[in-house]
Design a binder for these strands. Sequence first.
DNA 1: GCGCTCAGTTGAAAGCTTTCAAAATGAACG
DNA 2: CGTTCATTTTGAAAGCTTTCAACTGAGCGC
Lengths: 354, 354
Amino acid sequence: MANMQEIARMAGVSLGTVSHVLNNSAKVRESTRKRVLEAVQLVGYQPSQLARGLRRDKTNMIGMIIPDITNPFFPAVVRGAEDVAFSNGYRLILCNTDNDHSKEIIHLNELRTYLPAGLIVIPSNFSDLTTQAEYYRRAGAGVVCIDRLPKNWSGDSVTSDNEAGAYNATRHLIQLGHTRLATITGPLHLTNAAERLEGFKRAMKEAKLHLSPEYVQETSFDKQGGHAKTLVLLRLIPRPTAIFAGNDMIALGALLAIREAGLRCPEEISLMGFDDLDLAETTNPSLSSVSQPGYQLGTTAARLLLDRREGDTSPAKHIVLETLLHLRNSVSPPPDVATVGSSMNLIGKKQGRR
Amino acid sequence: MANMQEIARMAGVSLGTVSHVLNNSAKVRESTRKRVLEAVQLVGYQPSQLARGLRRDKTNMIGMIIPDITNPFFPAVVRGAEDVAFSNGYRLILCNTDNDHSKEIIHLNELRTYLPAGLIVIPSNFSDLTTQAEYYRRAGAGVVCIDRLPKNWSGDSVTSDNEAGAYNATRHLIQLGHTRLATITGPLHLTNAAERLEGFKRAMKEAKLHLSPEYVQETSFDKQGGHAKTLVLLRLIPRPTAIFAGNDMIALGALLAIREAGLRCPEEISLMGFDDLDLAETTNPSLSSVSQPGYQLGTTAARLLLDRREGDTSPAKHIVLETLLHLRNSVSPPPDVATVGSSMNLIGKKQGRR
DNA sequence: GCGCTCAGTTGAAAGCTTTCAAAATGAACG
DNA sequence: CGTTCATTTTGAAAGCTTTCAACTGAGCGC
């Protein structure tokens, strides 16, 4: 591959001049500039990002560390980040951690030696990000934490308003007439799962509804977890009439379990998810869910990183994105209320409102 | 960040020796080796991948170029590639092209200057990959093309057996008694779409069924396309009793259109998808689909790349992965046949067979 | 004709590693 | 103790760019 040396020779100038033309780092006579650019065109020269990064102490790469691209919530986030990154000349290195904290450390350690412009991280379980981020910052690379935060995180972050989203969803169920509400949460050491539980509890408390401990089940954020814990809930006496699932994967498992148990959703039991994945639309019944803006999560994080890169040194920002309650067919008034009247349609119209 | 120089000083040896310890590139006395490793441990030294790449003329990065990570078929592919890459010490740079050939070129040109170990590409529309790949090969980087191939591709490739998958799916529909089969294909300049149409046609021909041109509709690989073209098909007289969709997104759109038209699936019209995405399981009715191994597509491609890296210089390989017909509830015998008998259950049992 | 300024250009160093020829070390042997 | 040979270790170059101090040459005022 052609290098600067060759361009310099072709244009009859020195290395330095070629560099100046390429980077606009000094005034270059128009005629000289033209000669250089012509040579560049001619051989299709592209500067070595490796050498450039080494010399500048910074590359145009952004490390993106996520649990698992296969989890349907994450692709939109990644895409959001990539779009903003790409259109500003940055590229994304994608790393999956499987929520495994040791895998995360490997990535964090190695990524650093690429001198990335920054890092966007969805922390793994028990992440050590707080310590590691310090090294990055010292090296002049920003770190933005998204979706959930590790212990003691004091850096930049972008999250969804999990608490409010859960609160609104729960309140909606309560307004429909439900009094025996249960929830299946994600792992409560994850801030997003914990916040959603908080929102759920706040709505319950506000409505002065009793919440017995076995109505709160904790599990992993996946279908199997949702399935297993729903079976537990369905065996309780009295049985809950509505389940608020910590995310849509859990809700999906719940739906399965409800069907297996021979119950009808929403007639006998209502179900509410979180994330509003594409699949929420196509399940049977379609799934009501709290919509959180995954794509925006990614773009905002990337934007934040680039702003830092361009010199924004204001104190750590904690951006919280709004959620939206997306109502579909998996919720209805509880069995006893349903027979009374049809307040249901009315409330169904609220679709899309917060 | 600590560098080799520092390690050398700490261990009281020269740069070269540190390098040899780190790379096992020469015999080093055990005691010396130990001193070096201790220093490395102590400061948590990690070699600069940038400098290493520059010197070695090759990094541990693999460029992965795909249309859009947001398309539900791709995450599994990417994950497969990342898993194999990661466990062999390689990292993935993810690039989305949106099927835009000019965006692909930008990525191809820039990625080259990172001296990646190789490239895994799902070519965009009208991709120029064949030309570009030559440059990569000259630089000692492998290029593996997956899922679909660009014009004149003669390099390594990994694809699914689209033709056979489509053939089997179509034959199944025919065996159920359908005679008026229609298909909605993806863009026919894409090899995978074209191959699926070929398989469809072969089954039709074999069964001596007539296929009039308006029963073959071409569109983009997405929901909107599927929706629009299904509306076209449903207006035809006589109306097809089965639709073979080019992929599950098209099938999803078709399902919507069928529902809108007030028709019942599968009773009045059967629907078959391709890809067997997760969502196929949760639609109503659940979607029968040709399952192609996305994850394996990724792992195989990465494996192939690494083999090349390790010196495999055999001629270009064209690996074709098997598909599997995954039967669910969206197909049944056509209306007239259904009333005759219940061969349906029997065939339904074939689930999972090829 | 001299000195000064200023725009434009240059050359070399630096960034961090790998690699290779050459040097140093150490052990064995006569 | 001096050689020899094998084993370790070293030093410097190379890979490609950016950056900065220094240089060149033209134009200008006096």
